[in-house]
């Protein structure tokens, strides 16, 4: 049934919101996720984005809806996964989370409320990327982490999608970043936490 909370979200539909600021690769992450789901996992997905007028540094959100059938309403209504990369985004999106929603944060960028339950999963992706020598791969590290801690998209599809989306000549570096995040997720994540929607 449609209700105000769930809207028109049908069974088998998963919603992911990635929010931060411009320049963090938020939209590219959404693109990689959407592409993984619709091309490499052979399902359906829709990616939408919203951002402020600034080319860099303004707030930026990407929303991915994934389903096994064509998608009607293309926007997130009750997210299954949130990837939060700025305090501003945290303040905006941490309220009224649906039960079972998984939140992933970069602890160097976001200080969550101690009372938040369940506590968000943390990965210091920006720091890890800096240690690798290139902060731009932070988003790829997070995608690797997501692949390890959720069942939304197969790790294989996500990895293929990463390789198809990054600049030529950087495939190896991005694979390393993806695997770094993936292994971090296996170690620190809580697999199976994501609700079925």
């Amino acid at each position: 049934m449609l209700d105000n909370k769930q809207g028109c979200k049908s069974l088998g539909t998963k919603e992911i919101r990635i929010a931060g600021f411009g320049g963090q690769g938020v939209v590219l992450s959404g693109l990689i996720l959407g592409q993984a789901a619709s091309i490499y996992d052979d399902g359906f997905s829709a990616l939408t984005q919203s951002y402020g007028p600034e080319a860099r540094g303004g707030s930026c959100t990407a929303e991915v809806v994934i389903s096994d059938e064509p998608i009607g309403y293309p926007y997130v209504q009750s997210p299954n996964v949130l990837i939060i990369l700025s305090q501003e985004a945290y303040n905006k999106y941490s309220q009224d989370l649906p039960a079972g929603a998984l939140m992933i944060i970069d602890p160097d960028l976001v200080k969550p409320e101690p009372s938040q339950n369940p506590a968000p999963l943390s990965i210091p992706a920006t720091r890890m990327a800096r240690d690798m020598g290139r902060t731009v791969v932070a988003n790829i590290i997070i995608l690797g982490f997501l692949a390890a801690v959720s069942d939304l998209i197969s790790p294989e599809a996500l990895k293929n999608s990463v390789l198809a989306s990054v600049p030529k000549g950087t495939e190896e570096f991005n694979t390393k970043a993806f695997e770094l995040g993936y292994n971090y997720g296996l170690e620190h994540g809580r697999k199976g936490e994501v609700a079925d929607g």
């Binding site: 959407g34 592409q35 359906f44 293309p74």
Partner: peptide, 9 residues
Amino acid sequence: EAVGHMSEK
């Protein structure tokens, strides 16, 4: 804008 900026298969 919704269709123009939405990515799908």
